[in-house]
Amino acid sequence: MSPTDLPMPTARIPVPTRGCDCTACPFWAGPDGTGGPATVEALCSGTNSDCSYCGCSRAEADAPSGVCGTCPIRCPSRDNLRAWMADVGATLAFDDLHLADHGLPRLPGYIPQVDGTNVAELDEHLHWPAYAVGLRRVFSPRSHRIYPRWREGARAHDLLGLRPGQKAVLSGYGEDPLVEAFWSLRRRDQLIEQIAAQGWDLVLACNYSIYGNWPRLEHLINMRRSLLLATEFADAGLAVAPNVYWFRLEDLERWAQWIADTRPPAIAINAQTMRSAADWDRWLLPGLHWLAAQIPAELPVIITGLSRPDRIATATHLFGTRLTLLNQTPQAYGLHGEVMGAQGRRRVHASTPDAFRSSVRYFASLMPRTSEVHP
C-alpha cells in the first residue's frame, strides 16, 4: 500500500500557507534550518524569487472558491491544496518512502531509445545489449490508456523483437500532460500492474517537472510524486531507477540522505529538457558535480538526453564506469539519413538502419564501458 492509499482526516493534513507566507508555513525551514512543525527536515528554505505565479488573485483573503480548477500549478493559495497534499501522502518529505530492491539488470554504457517499431531491423548486425522505449509509445496521451498492442499479455521483449539476453527498458519520461495524466488516473495501480506484466527489465520512473518560474511548493510536490511513482513501480515487482530532480542545494542534500538511507539499485536523471547553455551551466552541471561527490561511489547513474560529446565527456569524467547514457538521437537522425559522429551531425543519405547503427556505435565509443555491462 502506498502512502496515497492511507486514510487521513482532512483537518489533520498540513498545508503551506496562502500567499506563500513562509513564517506560517509548516514546511519552512526557518532561519535556523531545523524544519517546520510538520517535519524535522529542512524541506524548504523559502519562496522562489523567480516565481511567475506570486501575483495570483487566489492569494487574496476574499478570493472566491473554485477558481483553481483549471490551473495546472500547485501553489499555496490553491483552494483544493489539501486534496493535493492528501494525494501525495500528506507530507512532502522522503523519509517514509522505501524502494523495493529487485536488483539492476546488466546494462551497457549506452542504450539507444527507439519508438518500439522495427527494432529487429535496426538491431541487425548490431546485436545491442539493451533498448529503451519512451512512455508515450506505451501509454496514450489521448486516451490515457495502454495502447492496444501493449495490452492483454503482451511482452515487451516479444513486441520489440529482442533476442535472448537483450534488455528492454521503459523510459517513463514524457511531456507534462502525459505524466500528469498517468498520475491522475483513478486506478493507477491497475495501470502499473499492466506495465509490470509486460516484463520490462528496468523502468526509469516518471519525473515531474521543476521549472524555475514555478512556486516552491510545486517543486516539492513534484519531487515527492516522482519518488512515489518509483516506489509504486517497485512494489509491482519491477526493477526501478527513481528520477532525481532538484532546484536547490537543499533538494540535492535530501536526495543524498534518502539514497544513503535506502540504497536504491540506481538513480536516473532526465536531462532532455536541459538543452540550453544556461540550463547546463547553472542547473545540471553543478548538480552533477555535487552528486558525483556525495552519493555512494558504486551507485549506478543513468542519464537520459545528453547527446553533445563535450557534455557526455563531462558526465563520464564525473561518474566513470557506473554511468549509463540513454538518448533518442540515433533513430531521430537515422530517419533523415543522418548520423552523429566525430565530425558532428552529418547527412550521409544512408538507410535508417545503417545510419542508426553508425550513431549507436559512436555514442558507445564515448562511454568508459562500450560493450561491457555492469557486473
Rank of each mutant, 00 (worst) to 15 (best):
R369L: 06
Q166D: 08
E175F: 00
L220F: 02
E232Y: 08
G237A: 03
Y333F: 15
V114K: 01
G19R: 05
P330R: 03
L335V: 14
C206N: 15
P265Y: 03
D310Q: 14
S358Y: 08
H125F: 09
M8S: 13
N243I: 00
N243L: 03
L227G: 10
A278Q: 10
M340Y: 14
P148A: 15
A42C: 13
H98D: 11
A90V: 07
T34M: 07
E253N: 08
G344W: 09
G69W: 02
R263V: 11
S49E: 15
R322H: 07
D101I: 04
D189M: 05
H127M: 11
L160F: 06
P300A: 11
L288A: 00
P286R: 04
A61R: 14
H98M: 08
T304F: 13
L107R: 00
N243V: 01
H349W: 01
A93S: 15
L326F: 01
P37S: 12
Y362N: 04
F182A: 08
D251N: 12
L335A: 15
V348W: 11
R311I: 05
I146W: 00
R369P: 04
E60G: 10
P141Q: 12
S184W: 01
D115M: 06
D96H: 12
V133L: 14
A355G: 13
P353Y: 07
H336R: 15
V244N: 07
C20L: 00
T17R: 11
I312S: 02
